[in-house]
């Protein structure tokens, strides 16, 4: 074992691979969509191209993880805003985070959430559209 390796398990699922990547633009204006789910990545890409997220057009990084291990409990939506962070929670299994200062949307999406619901309802709510 070296100083760079660890057997600590990834309990937070921070290091889930996101093989589906769409990038456009260059340098500081580069926009990237990353996901472990092709449907999610395509849905966000289509919405960005169609400029459905007008207020969120400044988002430079989308990293969304389809979380098959997430609990599927009640469908109540809760948003929490504090400073530059805004989070949206659908039950406990789906959590979306918008960092306005860093222009990033991060999140975990439970298996029960359809891509249509994600792009037409949850993300607009997260971005405050």
């Amino acid at each position: 074992m070296t100083a760079e390796t660890s057997w600590h398990p990834d309990l937070l699922r921070r290091f889930v691979a996101t093989p589906y990547v769409f990038c456009s633009g260059t340098g500081k204006k580069q926009r990237c969509i990353q996901s472990n789910d092709l449907g999610v990545a395509l849905s966000i890409r289509r919405s960005c191209i169609a400029q459905r997220f007008n207020g969120g057009s400044d988002v430079l990084l989308w990293k969304l993880i389809r979380d098959s291990a997430a609990p599927e409990d009640d469908a109540q939506i809760l948003t929490i805003s504090d400073g530059v962070l805004r989070t949206l929670h659908l039950g406990t299994g789906t959590v979306l985070i918008y960092d306005r200062e860093r222009a990033e949307v991060l999140g975990f999406i439970s298996a029960a959430v359809k891509t249509q619901q994600l792009s037409s309802s949850l993300i607009p709510s997260l971005l405050g559209l």
Partner: peptide, 23 residues
Amino acid sequence: PHFRGLHHVVTASFGSANVFVFD
């Protein structure tokens, strides 16, 4: 509890009414 984290943010939910966001 249910924990998740990406980049600099970690969330911890103790049911849907008790939610913590760590920046």
